[in-house]
Design a protein around this nucleic acid. Structure first.
Lengths: 203, 203
DNA sequence: AAATGATTTAACCAATTGGTCAAAGATAAG
DNA sequence: CTTATCTTTGACCAATTGGTTAAATCATTT
């Protein structure tokens, strides 16, 4: 049972991810996770000693889903405009497949920022690399003067926020689930266009 | 005590707003609200029958802070580009003064979308007005073809998301509290510039 | 100052919740 | 088959939590 993880354990992780990501740590109930996994509550504590331990496992995994791929693109050797397009499309893929994780991640980090410090290292962000690249492009006159922090903030905002605000957007505009997916698909083009048009020097 | 609301009641509302907005409904404890207000827990239930009732009062108020002013600008009779600048600066003002409400609002709405329906009416959004205005500007060739939903989503994303992701931004970039405020101030110019440059036809 | 009504408190209560435990089922090894 | 180890369960526990109650205090009116 060390090579192929026990089926029960996988079932628990899957169930816990569902419950945690859409109820949050405080709103999640161990009983509900047990029910979702189709097992006894005591068995949860057999595999994961406590709610905190189980949450930690899920959170690490979700953080990984949310950031690893995007950060690796951010740090790759690749032209800036291509990076922007790739990150945008990667984020839309990831968040379309995991609609709940954006709100979950930022809520949990806000409630307990220390968690970030411990887990973010494994994600392996090195902000200096992208900062240098943006600095170079500014110096070369390819893009207008802008701080890396602002550019990244713009990009992440445009990609992630619509998923966090999904019910609000749907409520205000009267979209249904399919409309929303369509709306997100359109953003695949709009986000890179908006970011790049705003920063490039030759309009 | 009907004209000037009881001092105790105000104290409770103030305390409840603090606790609810940074712990969320599920994480908030009636005892902690009582402590924060410097009163007995039973007194909470004397003024507000239940946790739900108290929450409802806070939520309505926070929703109002978050949306009313911005929506009134959105629906005002005003040139589009001016609207974009005004909304951006209003949002930065509001969220700088209430750093916790953005994360709070979207988290609570996600956990319980029905709440939006009941409360959003009082905020009084009429999406058609801005939709028409944007449609006109497109037809007049002042801005490129873009759906109102996308433009509003872009604007809200750029304004609101940085506050939701604040601890993440601070963690990744190594900003401290003052750096963050400075970072936000810079966005007063960057947000309208980004949005407007991307949509206007004469670059 | 006596009576009336509103405000505040300490003590309690029932339900929920995370967590434990001892016993029962499986599974594999000798 | 027997033993030993791992997995699963039902019953239970202590702590927490939202909520109640009856009595005490305070303020107002007469």
């Amino acid at each position: 049972m060390s090579e192929i993880e026990s089926n029960t354990e996988n079932g628990i992780l899957k169930a816990a991810r569902i419950v945690f990501t859409n109820k949050g740590f405080d709103g999640a109930r161990m009983q509900e996770i047990a029910d979702e996994a189709g097992i006894n509550k005591a068995l949860l504590h057999y595999y994961f000693r406590s709610k905190d331990k189980l949450f930690e496992a899920i959170f690490k995994d979700v953080l990984n889903t949310m950031f690893t791929k995007v950060i690796s693109v951010l740090m790759a050797e690749m032209p800036l405009f291509e990076k922007i397009e790739k990150i945008s499309s990667n984020y839309i893929d990831i968040l379309t497949q995991n609609p709940d994780i954006a709100g979950f991640v930022f809520h949990e980090i806000s409630r307990n920022p220390e968690r970030l410090v411990g887990n973010m290292k494994s994600v392996g962000a090195n902000f200096e690399i992208i900062k240098n690249q943006i600095g170079e492009e500014v110096k070369a006159g390819i893009i207008i003067p802008i701080k890396a922090e602002q550019l990244i903030a713009n990009l992440m905002s445009l990609c992630v926020f619509p998923f966090i605000a999904k019910p609000v957007f749907m409520g205000i505009t009267g979209m249904n689930q399919d409309d929303f997916l369509q709306f997100i698909e359109e953003r695949r083009q709009i986000i890179p266009y908006t970011i790049i048009t705003a920063i490039k020097t030759d309009k």
